[in-house]
């Protein structure tokens, strides 16, 4: 009898819980007393130096010097990790961000309505997942709007080969061969969600970072700001060393996967601040 009543009780609890989930199909709709904000700062650096567009000169592992004019990348599908192995998934529609080195504000990813608790790590996709890459045009708003993404002459969308550019880095290097216009430029436009009707290269990469001994305490009065570093030197140096002389232009080609495998490792956790209200 005990077993039976317990199972009925469990059914009842499960039913009620799922009914609530179904009824209010809105993940932001959690009690206001139990949430806080988390900010992820994406601080782009080159080794030990801060990244400065245009004027900063850096050297990659192949010994080639270069400057950077554009650095943009998508961060999406963010999860906050708990010590017990569970996680909180930021609601899909609120989980697409375009980090642009040229726009400081874009480097602070503000996550709202995060359930109060203690978080020990973060997981995110560099790029845009395949489902969203093929979704209806009504889902392509904000940073995913192909029109806005292209508006500043700085497109993050391939209109001829439908899909987003996950990471774009352009700059100059004396080691890069001169292009048709006579410039020594390098251009890395890395995208590719795996193909729509036929499989092709897939550069969707998931980054998982632990905060070490630090804990992000989230509550209505406590909003941690988590400072992450993105070291662009690692784009050139990871599983494969990339040379600007050999590969000044990488866009829609299988070699793009080499670069994605490198930049997967360019992110690290540095420190966090806690803002108490």
């Amino acid at each position: 009898m005990k077993g039976l009543s317990y199972s009925i009780y469990s059914f009842f609890v499960a039913f009620t819980f799922s009914a609530f989930l179904l009824a209010c199909n809105n993940s932001d709709d959690v009690p206001p007393t139990g949430t806080g904000e988390v900010t992820l700062e994406f601080d782009n650096v080159a080794g030990t130096k801060n990244l400065v567009l245009g004027s900063g000169t850096y050297q990659n592992a192949a010994g080639e010097s270069f400057t950077v004019d554009i650095l943009n990348y998508f961060v999406s599908n963010i999860k906050l990790l708990r010590a017990d192995g569970t996680h909180y998934t930021v609601p899909q529609d609120s989980s697409y961000f375009l980090i642009r080195e040229a726009e400081r504000e874009s480097q602070f990813v503000k996550l709202k309505n995060i359930p109060a608790g203690e978080y020990v790590g973060v997981e995110f996709v560099v790029g845009v997942d395949s489902l969203r890459s093929v979704s209806d045009i009504s889902k392509r708003t904000g940073v995913l709007d192909p029109a806005d993404a292209s508006h500043e002459g700085n497109s993050m969308y391939w209109s001829w080969n439908s899909g987003y550019i996950f990471l774009k880095m352009e700059g100059t290097s004396p080691q890069a061969q001169t292009d048709a216009a006579g410039n020594r430029k390098f251009r890395y436009h890395i995208g590719g969600f795996g193909g729509y009707s036929a499989p092709t290269f897939n550069n969707i990469r998931t980054v998982r970072l632990q905060f070490g001994s630090d804990k992000a305490q989230v509550s209505p009065g406590s909003s941690p700001e988590i400072h992450l570093l993105a070291d662009i030197l690692k784009i050139f140096n990871g599983p494969t060393q990339i040379s600007l002389a050999t590969n000044p232009t990488v866009m829609v080609s299988p070699y793009s996967t080499t670069i994605a495998n490198n930049y997967l490792n360019m992110f690290s956790y540095d420190h966090m601040h806690v803002h108490n209200d």
Binding site: H151, S159, W160, S162
Partner: peptide
């Protein structure tokens, strides 16, 4: 290269030898 009619115009509009516009 395009797999949804709603995304077809981007290609012609943004191609620099077609409409060359954003």
């Amino acid at each position: 290269g395009v797999h949804n009619l709603d995304f077809v115009p981007f290609n012609a509009i943004e191609n620099e030898v077609e409409m060359d516009e954003k």
